[in-house]
Computed example of a mutant assay.
Amino acid sequence: MAGTTQPRVSTTDHLLTIAIDRFGRAGLEGASTRDIAGAAGKPLSAITYHFGGKEGLYLAAAEHIANQLGGWLAPALARSHEICAEDGDPQAARAALHGILGAAIVIMTREETEAFARFIVREQADPTEAFTILYDGVMGPASDRVCALVHCAAGKRITQAEARLRTLMLIGQILMFRVCRATVLRGMGWDAIGPAEQSEIRRIAGDNLDAILDRLATGEPA
């Protein structure tokens, strides 16, 4: 009986996967292209051929992260423009926000984003051209969509600036479970964040969202 055929990974994707891990652990200066190529089972010339060199590989890694995260979030974000039309429905916006937060929790707690997080945290601490790629490619567009939904779900009773700040805080509570994973595991006494833990995080994040939106919808300070 023939074995299952595994999907073939392109040379560029394989190099990028290794590069994201190495750059996240050691930074642009600390990571070695020779080590990256060797770990990928490719000659050093493959990096020059496909990316033009180390800096090109670094920027391509940022673009790869942005594309992956954007693709994973796209289904949850898809209807935000329609919902946030001039006569947008606050309840539809609230439901969309629940969907986005739930999707983000799953994404941020999956193993694939561990290496992404290391890379992104380095860029947050010391931004380079790669941060612009990450922000313009996924962070900015996603936060814009969420901000519009928050404004709509609040019945447009708050300013755009307040909606933006509340959006960043909502996103921050989700990022906690990726960038502070060791603290979460130790504090909760968990060995890992699996489906049961994801479900509990989603439940409480949803409660927090509803509590905020309930207060905003009445015009009271939250």
Rank of each mutant, 00 (worst) to 15 (best):
E129H: 07
A92T: 02
D136K: 07
A76D: 09
H64A: 10
D126C: 10
E111I: 08
I174H: 00
I107R: 04
A130R: 01
D144G: 12
M176P: 02
A74Y: 13
L185K: 01
I120L: 12
Y135F: 14
R181F: 09
F116N: 08
I107W: 01
V106Y: 02
C180D: 15
L77V: 05
E111Y: 09
Q173S: 14
L149W: 04
P75E: 12
E162W: 06
D87V: 07
L57I: 09
A125S: 07
H98P: 06
P141E: 14
A103R: 12
Y58D: 06
R122L: 15
D126Y: 10
E129K: 08
G137S: 08
T109S: 06
G71D: 03
I100G: 01
I107Y: 05
Y58M: 09
P75R: 07
L97M: 11
L97S: 07
L175S: 14
F131D: 05
G102K: 08
K54P: 03
M169C: 13
G88Q: 02
E129D: 14
I120K: 00
M108H: 12
D87W: 06
M169R: 15
A153T: 00
R79V: 05
T159M: 02
G137C: 05
D144C: 11
A93N: 01
L59D: 13
L170G: 05
L77A: 03
L185Q: 04
A95M: 10
P141Y: 03
N67M: 09
E111G: 07
R181D: 07
L97G: 07
G172C: 08
L77N: 07
V146W: 05
T167G: 04
G137V: 03
E55I: 08
D89A: 14
I133G: 00
G172S: 14
P75S: 11
L175R: 12
A62G: 15
V146A: 08
A60P: 04
A148K: 08
K156I: 02
A115E: 09
Q124M: 14
